[in-house]
């Protein structure tokens, strides 16, 4: 499956056109093109990393899981049948891996916060909250990051996964069901209970 490109340092996937869609890249990867798989990995790794970070609350765990998920996808690329989007298939691998590690207690038990982009300070939610609570924006952001991550980690893993995929990633219930291997009804039910719990934990920031 692997051609000589595997032995070289990673570089631009020069032999794979940048405009190729995921389906074409996946087909090329299944035919043995490491460059095609690397192009897919580069395209999706940021979202994958973000999703795993929101799920685990720990930056280092998320990085390890992200790499392991990509390796698993690489080794099993031929099992991608094209019945779903490539990123749905990749997310499924990553979420299952994360939930499995959580079940086995193999993840770090503390939050390790990710860096905040500069634009976070001027986000509408932060501006409104800072105004309502009459507090400094920079301090509020630090506090918000800890409180929101802490509240997410207080949820059971499967509820947390649904909230992350629905609210943070913005995926529809049908896709979430495909990723988690459950029905849309189960997704909506878990989402409902997760939101109720989060509203209790974060009520200080939600009251008018």
């Amino acid at each position: 499956m692997v051609d000589g490109a595997l032995l070289s340092r990673p570089g631009p996937a020069a032999e794979v056109p940048a405009e190729w869609e995921d389906g074409a890249l996946a087909t090329a990867a299944q035919a043995g093109s490491v460059a095609a798989f690397d192009a897919l990995a580069r395209r999706h790794r940021a979202r994958l990393m973000g999703m795993l970070y929101h799920l685990t609350g720990n930056r280092e765990d998320a990085a390890d899981l992200c790499q392991d998920a990509l390796i698993r996808a690489f080794c099993h690329i031929r099992s991608f049948g094209g019945r779903s989007q490539f990123y749905t298939w990749l997310y499924r691998i990553a979420v299952n891996l994360a939930l499995e590690q959580m079940r086995r207690g193999r993840l770090r038990r503390f939050c390790s916060l990710e860096r905040l982009a500069a634009a976070a300070e001027s986000d509408g939610a932060v501006l409104a909250l800072a105004s309502r609570l009459k507090t400094d924006r920079a301090l509020l952001m630090k506090e918000l990051q800890q409180q929101i991550n802490g509240a997410l980690q207080a949820l059971p893993p499967k509820q947390r996964a649904v909230v992350v995929l629905a609210e943070v990633e913005g995926l529809p219930a049908g896709e979430i069901g495909q990723i988690l291997g459950c029905s849309e009804g189960t997704v909506r039910s878990r989402l409902h209970y997760a939101r109720e719990r989060l509203k209790e934990l974060l009520h200080h920031y939600l009251e008018g």
């Binding site: 990995a41 970070y53 990085a63 860096r115 905040l116 976070a120 986000d123 939610a125 990051q145």
Partner: peptide, 29 residues
């Protein structure tokens, strides 16, 4: 409260690693 919760959770999208992180990530991968 529901809308505000949604806004706060979407605010988490600003949590993003920098370029140096991705260089280390690629090498380790």
């Amino acid at each position: 409260a529901d809308e505000r919760l949604g806004q706060l959770l979407r605010w988490k999208r600003w949590e993003q690693p920098d370029a140096a992180f991705w260089e280390r990530f690629d090498a380790t991968f």
